[in-house]
Amino acid sequence: MHIVYPTSVSALLFAVGVYGVLARRNAILLLMSVELMLNAVNLNLVAFDVWWRDRLHGGQVLTLFTIVIAAAEVGLGLAIILLVYRNRSSVEVDRLRALGEDGTGAGAPDAARPPAPARDERDPSDRETAGRGNAGADAGRGDAGRETEEAAP
């Protein structure tokens, strides 16, 4: 058995998982891609365990542990995704921007207001003035503080 075949298959599978995590929008598809990456790691562990003829079977036992952890991760991940779906009616990770830098919260139910321009468009002096009102705005004052910031320039 050439060891290069299992490891190459594992590397390709990992790359497929990387593509899925980066390119997909649906959170459940993201979980599936993470599972693909975990399986690539498992294949590596098993291949090297068999290859080195480990007397303690560390690789295969660690593979079993990884499978269990992956099952727990899927369970928790699905619980979180269902919670997000219940609150936001969407599981598209591109739209869950409530914690983003601009704070528009486009996936939130109160997303009717026009999107605020990105902070980078302002010059540094404006950022200084906005910084004073910003501490309160981040704590939840939200729209009012942001509107005055936008009106400053």
Partner: peptide, 24 residues
């Protein structure tokens, strides 16, 4: 189902695959 950064993702994935397979 796919986001806008599909081509960047494809590039990153191809680079990952090339790197790992080359190392192996």
């Amino acid at each position: 189902l796919d986001s806008g950064n599909r081509w960047i993702a494809l590039g990153v994935a191809l680079a990952t695959a090339a790197l790992l397979v080359t190392v192996m």
